[in-house]
């Protein structure tokens, strides 16, 4: 998959030292899922989203969420046109191919859920008329870590709508040095070359569906899901939807790896990004560590 490698290389030029996360983001897009990036401000979330849009030649809009934002501000409103004497829909920023929803947890729950519903259904219903969103349609939402004041935490049910959650984290010292030495990032992003267009991306997304997963692999995925349900450290286990997402993400990962079949490694690679944000710990503690420990404890191949 030369195109994908190229795309990765392109984005890697501006988001330095985060190959793993880039691959995950890419896989998320290929699996037609939405991405949630959780990080402190200034970690390059915006840059990543912007770069992805450039590389795939996607319509790109960025919305900074605030607490006084209303659903109409994102979806659009029906306005009365005095000339035509008719109501017409003024599309909101959601009608784009790649939407960067910055600091989504600053918005009120109502606004959040309006966006999330649109994400799920890939269409917007306003005043009784339904409009499909463009194809492809991705949302990259960013969120400040929960502890920050003045935020509305996304409820679990909404988090399920994001296929993956990643966090970029601080760059390594070397990368940071490069970063400091480099020029204006925005400028660089603008200089990125497109690799595929939106249509190509849709085709790739279809290819993901054809990646083979054997019975044994499906078994493994099922065992992982089962393990989250049986593990009483979590409030609740993963939903079947999460399971489908996991499999789709693993397929996309396999595609990026240049294979037409899924290996357990693919599942393991996307597992934290897919599972962590959907699970809540019962008694505090690091969900990340618990999710990771499941990978250790769930046998890949069935035992006697």
């Amino acid at each position: 998959m030369q195109a994908l490698d190229k795309a990765l290389a392109q984005v890697g030029r501006v988001v330095l030292g985060k190959e793993e996360q880039l691959k995950l983001a890419l896989a998320c897009m290929l699996a037609r899922g939405h991405l949630l990036i959780e990080d402190l401000p200034g970690m390059g979330k915006t840059t990543l989203a912007h770069a992805l849009a450039r590389v795939f030649q996607l319509d790109y809009r960025r919305v900074q969420f605030t607490s006084d934002m209303l659903p109409a501000d994102i979806l659009g409103v029906s306005v009365f046109d005095p000339e035509t004497r008719q109501f017409s829909l003024r599309e909101g920023p959601v009608f784009t191919q790649l939407l960067l929803a910055d600091e989504i947890n600053r918005a009120t729950p109502k606004t959040q859920s309006a966006l999330l519903e649109a994400m799920e259904e890939r269409q917007v219903t306003l005043d009784g008329s339904t409009r499909p969103l463009p194809e492809p349609f991705f949302v990259v939402a960013t969120q400040n870590p929960v502890d920050q004041a003045g935020t509305f935490v996304l409820p679990e049910s909404q988090l399920d709508r994001f296929l993956m959650r990643i966090s970029l984290g601080y760059p390594s010292p070397e990368v940071e040095l490069d970063l400091l030495a480099g020029g204006d990032l925005r400028e660089q992003v603008r200089e990125l070359k497109a690799v595929i267009n939106g249509e190509g991306l849709v085709k790739l997304g279809r290819m993901v569906e054809t990646i083979r997963a054997t019975r044994e692999l499906l078994d493994y995925v099922q065992r992982l899901l089962e393990a989250t349900r049986e593990d009483d450290r979590f409030v609740a286990g993963l939903s079947p939807r999460a399971g489908l997402g996991l499999l789709r993400a693993a397929r996309a990962w396999a595609l990026i790896g240049g294979r037409d079949y899924v290996l357990p490694e693919d599942v393991q690679a996307v597992w934290p990004a897919v599972a962590e944000h959907r699970l809540t710990a019962r008694q505090g503690g690091s969900v990340a560590a618990m999710t990771q420990s499941l990978l250790q404890s769930v046998p890949v191949v069935r035992r006697a």
Binding site: L263, P264, E265, Q268, L294, L295, Q296, S297, V298, P299, V300, V301, R303
Partner: peptide
């Protein structure tokens, strides 16, 4: 670990 893949 029980979760060792063939590759690992």
């Amino acid at each position: 670990a029980p979760g060792t893949t063939p590759r690992q």
